[in-house]
Design a protein around this nucleic acid. Sequence first.
DNA 1: TATCAGGGCCTAG
DNA 2: CTAGGCCCTGAT
Length: 286
Amino acid sequence: MTVGIQDDFDLEKIRQSGQCFRIRTFDDGSYRFITGREVLYIRQADGNLYEVSCCEENWNAIWKPYFSLDSDYRSIRERSAGKNPFIDRAMEESAGLRVLKQDPWEMLVTFIISQRKSIPAIAGSVEMLAEKFGSRIIADRETVYAFPTAEEMEHVSIEELQNCSLGYRSKYVLDAVRKVNSGELDLDAISNLDDDALFDALQAVFGVGKKVANCICLFGYGRTGRAPVDVWIQRAIDEGCGGMNPFEQFGENAGIIQQYMFFYQRNRKDSDESEPAGQTDHQVPA
DNA sequence: TATCAGGGCCTAG
DNA sequence: CTAGGCCCTGAT
């Protein structure tokens, strides 16, 4: 069927935004997304019109929330403008990307894996995990594998994880599996916590520090006030913000601004005028 | 072929 | 608080 999307929405920018590692493209311009056991093929037809492979119920119940289409990003950009020239530029260049609302368990494991890895390497490991331990899905255009649940990973060995190129992160993932399956960490229950408490609860997992915890808050729990600071954002802060963390002033939209900055910093021509000025005040609590 | 950085985190001092 | 080590990959 066809849906109309009036707000900022750019599939290619979403694909490159580094928050989701299982997006696939097809030659006809279609993009494939997976969440849980649901698979979506979506293609821009004309202007604001998109052809989607799902029914209207699933579009409304699953995919509109997934793409955060209940938020008005255009107005968020407008209201966030005028505070910092670098960020203004980042918002212009990156308009169209969305913060995706993804599965918390998948985000926990994926961002544990992400540490000290390049994006292609992360994608490779996540794909291997899905193929080895996830359930098979016969989708419209291919056979795909869902990201494995904690239950499906219950008896996974350290060797099997090593074979997915997890390296020293294997023991971290194993700890996540154990804590979630034992109930020591209840990913549903903690969704009721406020941002700071959620942030702290996630860091109980071995291998989850501030950056990874903030990624899970933002991409898994929709906590848009959270702004993870990674090496790219730190570079943007050094080169565009005089070394001072700019996210406090954006409040509940800090995480969205962070995504604009991340995309912009990765794609812009290296300024090389890197001026590491000032301290690096790290993760921003809302 | 060799080198290096990559969406960090843990541990020791 | 700071420095080192860590598994492995993709890029040069």
